[in-house]
Amino acid sequence: MKQPAAILEPRGSIALDDYVADLGWSHDGTRLAVAGGEGKVFLLHRDGESLRARQVAEHGLGAIAVAWQPGGNVFVSSGQDSCVNLYDGDSGERRVQRRPSKQWTTALAWSPNGDRLATAAGREIVVWSAALESERTLSSLDAVVAAIAWDKPGRDLAAAINGGLVLHRLDGDVVEVRRLKWAAPCTTVAFSPNGKVVATGTQDGSVHFWYLATGRDSQMRGYPSRVAHTEWDGDGKYLATVAHDQIVVWDFRGKGPEGSRPVQLLGHTERVVGVAFQPRGGYLATIGLDWRISLWLPGKAPRALDAHLTDAEPTVLRWSPDGRFIAVGERSGRLTIFELVRLV
């Protein structure tokens, strides 16, 4: 089969004085926010291939996550000091600091239209207004939250916990809770873009998903270890799942993946630590502890279109909102921008 040719071209790099634990793009792709594993929070401005960084805050013992407001000009960070900070996207000035819990806030998720922010710490989820002025605590969880995700309309907020997924339908002051039970520690959660399916990866090496209209559920077993990533493509056709060095893509077209053979993407030789589908496109990018940054087109080919061997351990990978660039952070503190270049 002829492979659609595309490569990743480096488009600038910067060395930050911290482990890159998380990063997020601004909606226009001109800025990035970075959470450093040792605590620093950076705001990066991008101009062509030039990157300028400024430390804007420090989260005591370590920063955990950052998230840029969709369509907006603010971003948030959380850290091991248990704080959640909100920053101005131009100046980097910290506007608000909240401490929703004594536990670490490990997950940050903006609703797709950016009007609300969900944060998860321990067994609590807090849904904030966009400026972190008002809050509502969801206390329906009987286990520690491992991951949270909004559906595309921003109506349902799902939490992955030990024992399944908990869906919260937020409608004004009313919160309707729906529990999708599965007797395993669930580690990820992702709604399909069309809202029909919600998927989770589990600690015991399986992927479980539910068809929301009917409640029917399916399980895909056989992973070698914990399923650490479940990522949908922009059309909801494919679900990419990762356990250790194995990338397995399930095809949800037609009758769905039940009974079908998934596509296994072959190439990484060590644990895959980052996986992301191109927004509004079919390309998939991955990074692994084999120090490879790989580009795939899962519907077309089981082997990578392009692979970069770096000289350091990559830690996090994010596509720019327009799907043209990816940013890859490394343990060493380096952050590199790659552009997706089609060769046809």
Binding site: Y19, G62, W104, R331, S332
Partner: peptide, 11 residues
């Protein structure tokens, strides 16, 4: 699992 995973995110 989660806490130790986070503690590894240091140079």
């Amino acid at each position: 699992l989660r806490i130790l995973g986070q503690l590894l995110k240091r140079r």
